[in-house]
Amino acid sequence: SKDAAQYVYDEAQKGVTQVTVNGVTFKFDNWQKLLKYAQKLLN
């Protein structure tokens, strides 16, 4: 959902490398990768 994507995006902006959405945890090597993933979700 857009809300989940926005949440992931906001978390990535904080510099975190993992985020949990609806009980599913996504882990990334660095926050830039998390940010890229979030941007994909938002598009």
Rank of each mutant, 00 (worst) to 15 (best):
S1F: 13
S1I: 13
S1Q: 07
S1D: 08
S1N: 13
S1M: 11
S1T: 13
K2M: 05
K2E: 08
K2V: 14
D3M: 03
D3E: 03
D3H: 08
A4V: 05
A4S: 09
A4R: 01
A4W: 14
A5K: 03
A5L: 13
A5N: 09
Q6V: 08
Q6I: 07
Q6G: 07
Q6A: 04
Q6R: 02
Y7V: 10
Y7F: 11
Y7Q: 08
V8F: 10
V8I: 08
V8D: 11
V8K: 10
V8P: 14
V8E: 13
V8Y: 14
V8C: 15
Y9K: 01
Y9A: 09
D10T: 11
D10P: 05
D10A: 08
D10H: 06
D10F: 13
E11N: 03
E11P: 10
E11D: 10
E11C: 15
E11T: 14
E11G: 03
E11F: 14
E11Q: 08
E11V: 14
A12L: 12
Q13E: 11
Q13G: 10
Q13C: 15
Q13A: 11
Q13N: 11
Q13K: 05
Q13M: 12
K14G: 14
K14F: 11
K14M: 09
K14P: 10
K14N: 11
G15V: 12
G15A: 06
G15W: 15
G15D: 02
G15F: 11
V16H: 03
V16T: 04
V16Y: 07
V16G: 06
V16F: 10
V16R: 04
V16Q: 07
T17N: 05
T17G: 05
T17I: 13
T17W: 13
T17A: 06
Q18V: 10
Q18E: 08
Q18K: 07
Q18D: 04
V19T: 04
V19L: 12
V19N: 02
V19G: 05
V19F: 07
V19A: 07
T20N: 04
T20C: 15
T20K: 04
T20L: 14
T20W: 12
V21A: 08
V21Y: 02
V21Q: 06
V21T: 10
V21L: 05
V21P: 06
N22S: 11
N22D: 06
N22L: 10
N22K: 09
N22M: 15
N22H: 09
N22R: 09
G23N: 02
G23W: 13
V24W: 13
V24T: 04
V24Y: 09
V24M: 06
V24I: 05
T25K: 10
F26L: 13
F26A: 03
F26P: 03
F26D: 02
F26T: 07
F26C: 15
F26W: 08
F26Y: 09
K27W: 14
K27M: 15
K27E: 05
F28A: 03
F28I: 09
F28G: 01
F28P: 02
F28V: 08
F28M: 06
F28R: 01
F28Q: 03
D29I: 14
D29G: 12
D29N: 08
N30Y: 09
N30W: 14
N30F: 15
N30S: 12
N30L: 09
W31Q: 00
W31H: 01
Q32C: 05
Q32P: 03
K33Q: 09
K33S: 08
K33E: 13
K33D: 14
L34D: 00
L34K: 00
L34G: 00
L34P: 00
L34Y: 02
L34E: 00
L34M: 01
L35G: 00
L35Y: 02
L35C: 12
L35Q: 01
L35M: 02
K36V: 06
K36Q: 06
K36W: 11
Y37F: 13
Y37W: 11
Y37V: 04
Y37I: 05
Y37E: 02
Y37M: 09
Y37N: 02
A38G: 01
A38L: 15
A38I: 14
Q39K: 03
Q39M: 12
Q39H: 03
Q39L: 11
K40Y: 07
K40P: 01
K40F: 03
K40T: 07
K40W: 10
K40L: 06
L41M: 02
L41I: 04
L41F: 04
L41K: 01
L41Q: 01
L42Y: 03
L42K: 01
L42S: 01
L42P: 00
L42G: 01
L42N: 01
N43Y: 04
N43V: 01
N43F: 10
